[in-house]
Design a protein around this nucleic acid. Structure first.
Lengths: 228, 228
DNA sequence: GTCTATAATATGATAGAC
DNA sequence: GTCTATCATATTATAGAC
């Protein structure tokens, strides 16, 4: 109604979104609202309003509400996965259990809390989205879970992790401990580096094959897994 | 419309709810649907239908949807809290770190997975309920968290937990690891006792003040916390 | 205690103007 | 690319019959 006379000259108003970024803005806004309100309570009108748009306009960028939620879910896992993969690849080839877990845990936590709206939305609403959306997202979750389990299995084969540790369960414990940070972590109360260190220390001491606190390098590596 | 002639003689039809159990049935049903659909997507019609009732009838037992969700949230925490408290109280007074954590973790997991609909609903929808509901439930959550932190602080004062461990964070890690089991635990794939043992072993080894695998009783206790 | 009927409001999605 | 208007449907909660 008011002042849309000079609109055709600009592709976009300089509100808070730049250039061709409407799609990104919608996804980020949707993630934030999904996180706080849940899947069903998040209306397209609410997403649009927070983007200074109207509900009908979202359909230019997305086919449906489910397509929006699908992309939000995938982004949440993909950002963390990418962060951990590239951090672990940068490690020296024969990195110790301690170095590997410190690195992977810190990378997971850093990406988790940096893309907070996407990751928190993912954890909170995964169980609430329509079944087809959930099933198609599940593959990516499984791939990330397998990545961690295979990393731990390699360390166990090298003798760095005690043979009795069940690594499938260990991955579940770790994911639970790390992802719960979306619910309690607060910049003002904690330092991310120190949180990562606390968690890594706990897990490394809990998993390692034998006490190696004093001089990690001097211990002979055990090969093969022990038969019970 | 059909056959409600002899209704006044019975207080209740023998459907699947006994005696004065309509309230309980509604709460259990609500918890199950809240868990799967989320807070907003759970309609009173859906809860009522699953109880073989009509939406309007719920208002005889509850004042509003928010009162139902409030009670569901509280029950989820209270059942776990009660279970852990009574299991820990049954321990010998000077129980070791290992005995205490094995006991508390198993009690938490057992109640968590036994009251699965209530506990899973609690974890999933806590962030989505209206603010007044969330705030009034938060006290109970905080009380349970304090219970665990104080238990760990006592063990640290006794020298059983290494002084560098941050116990506030440890409680967050533990809660995350334990509560995530609502998302992956499956009777057919796992044995609860073994899961509790795996988790307790990991945490005990990760927290203990010094390696005491061989003979826990022989180590001298350290008093006071070390100044850094 | 449970029912029917209804009030007031909100939803996802579509069509077509600009 | 974004808007307005609209359809068909669903929502919580209330009132009052039985």
């Amino acid at each position: 109604m008011l002042k849309n006379t000079a609109k055709s000259a600009l592709t976009k108003l300089p509100g808070e979104t730049a250039g061709a970024g409407s799609r990104h803005l919608i996804l980020e806004t949707a993630a934030r609202i999904f996180r706080h309100e849940g899947y069903a309570a998040t209306s397209l009108r609410a997403i649009a309003a927070a983007c200074n748009m109207k509900a009908g306009s979202l359909y230019y960028h997305f086919e449906s509400k489910d397509q929006i939620v699908s992309e939000v879910l995938d982004i949440g896992v993909q950002k963390v996965f990418d962060s951990v993969k590239s951090a672990v690849q940068a490690l020296a080839p024969g990195a110790t259990l301690g170095a590997t877990l410190h690195c992977a845990i810190e990378a997971h936590l850093r990406a988790l809390l940096h893309a907070h709206d996407f990751t928190s939305a993912n954890i909170r609403i995964f169980g609430q989205v329509p079944a087809p959306v959930r099933e198609s997202h599940r593959m990516l979750r499984r791939a990330y879970e397998n990545y961690w389990r295979e990393m731990l299995e390699q360390l166990q084969r090298d003798g760095a992790i005690r043979a009795e540790a069940d690594l499938q369960q260990t991955v579940y414990f770790l994911f639970g401990a790390m992802n719960w940070a979306t619910e309690w972590y607060d910049d003002k109360r904690f330092d991310l580096k120190l949180v990562a260190n606390q968690m890594a220390d706990l897990v490394v001491l809990g998993l390692q094959a034998a006490p190696e606190r004093a001089s990690p390098e001097l211990r002979p590596k055990q090969r093969k897994k022990q038969v019970s």
